[in-house]
Simulated assay, not measured.
Amino acid sequence: MPRRFLQRYMPHPDTLRRQRSLRFMSHLIGNPSLWVLSRRSVANAFSVGLFSAMLPIPFQMVVAAFGAWLTRCNLPLSVGLVWITNPLTMPLIFYGNYRLGAWLMDIPARQAPSRLSTRWVAEQMADILPALAVGSVVSALVIAILGNVTIRLIWRWQVSRSWKQRSRRRHRRRCHEQDP
């Protein structure tokens, strides 16, 4: 079942609350409704986390935590999913978002230089920013919706599979008990 799988890898709220760097958020971390693992809370956590991950902003984890608090979804999952855009994947994802935004805005996209640097990005920021913002928001919305629907379908499939397995086991037990 998805719940057992997720519980295996989730930190315990008390462990996080005791961390000195997170004490200012102890009231948020201690809220039991933000640690529930249900189909709705996990699917919504995927939406919040994936949406936050696609935004080219600093402090994505704070945005994801605030989104989890607003939507009452699973806090650690939404914050953890932000790491899809890590230092290795971020340039590719945000360049893809920029290209998507340029295509949607019908403007020619700039080619990435052979050697990407922060200086080049800073010099091009005025031209890049509108397309990057549009592309990031559109991709964030699409990925958040797809993530939510996918998790709900996977959860439903797992529950259905589990019920069928239990039904087969009960049927086998009944057949075994009736045999002399």
Results as ranks from 00 to 15, higher is better:
residue 71 T to C: 14
residue 105 M to S: 11
residue 109 A to C: 00
residue 77 L to Q: 03
residue 101 G to M: 00
residue 72 R to Q: 15
residue 131 A to I: 05
residue 65 A to P: 01
residue 101 G to L: 01
residue 165 Q to W: 11
residue 141 L to Q: 04
residue 92 L to K: 02
residue 134 V to N: 03
residue 138 V to E: 12
residue 94 F to Y: 15
residue 80 G to W: 13
residue 153 L to G: 04
residue 51 F to L: 10
residue 127 D to S: 13
residue 149 V to Q: 06
residue 111 Q to G: 01
residue 106 D to R: 11
residue 134 V to A: 14
residue 114 S to N: 15
residue 164 K to W: 08
residue 127 D to N: 14
residue 152 R to G: 05
residue 50 L to C: 06
residue 85 T to A: 10
residue 94 F to H: 10
residue 91 P to G: 12
residue 82 V to Q: 13
residue 162 S to Y: 08
residue 89 T to Q: 01
residue 121 V to R: 00
residue 125 M to S: 15
residue 152 R to P: 00
residue 170 R to A: 15
residue 52 S to R: 02
residue 99 R to Y: 02
residue 83 W to M: 06
residue 153 L to Y: 10
residue 139 S to G: 04
residue 93 I to D: 05
residue 86 N to K: 07
residue 167 S to E: 12
residue 63 V to G: 12
residue 130 P to L: 02
residue 158 Q to M: 12
residue 96 G to P: 03
residue 125 M to P: 08
residue 68 A to W: 13
residue 74 N to H: 06
residue 155 W to N: 00
residue 123 E to T: 13
residue 160 S to F: 04
residue 135 G to W: 01
residue 95 Y to T: 11
residue 168 R to P: 02
residue 116 L to G: 08
residue 73 C to F: 08
residue 152 R to C: 10
residue 48 V to S: 01
residue 72 R to H: 09
residue 65 A to W: 01
residue 87 P to G: 10
residue 103 W to Y: 12
residue 111 Q to I: 01
residue 102 A to L: 03
residue 49 G to L: 01
residue 76 P to C: 13
residue 130 P to I: 00
residue 60 Q to T: 03
residue 134 V to D: 01
residue 152 R to A: 04
residue 49 G to P: 15
residue 148 N to I: 05
residue 69 W to E: 13
residue 65 A to T: 08
residue 170 R to Q: 10
residue 84 I to D: 08
residue 161 R to C: 09
residue 50 L to A: 05
residue 149 V to P: 04
residue 128 I to Y: 00
residue 98 Y to Q: 00
residue 163 W to N: 13
residue 54 M to V: 02
residue 122 A to D: 12
residue 165 Q to V: 11
residue 116 L to K: 00
residue 51 F to I: 01
residue 74 N to Q: 10
residue 100 L to D: 07
residue 145 I to F: 13
residue 132 L to F: 08
residue 146 L to A: 13
residue 75 L to C: 09
residue 71 T to E: 05
residue 50 L to D: 09
residue 75 L to W: 03
residue 63 V to L: 15
residue 139 S to I: 03
residue 81 L to D: 09
residue 72 R to M: 14
residue 58 P to Q: 00
residue 100 L to W: 03
residue 85 T to V: 09
residue 122 A to Y: 12
residue 50 L to T: 11
residue 152 R to K: 07
residue 113 P to L: 09
residue 166 R to T: 14
residue 111 Q to R: 05
residue 113 P to C: 06
residue 165 Q to P: 05
residue 67 G to M: 04
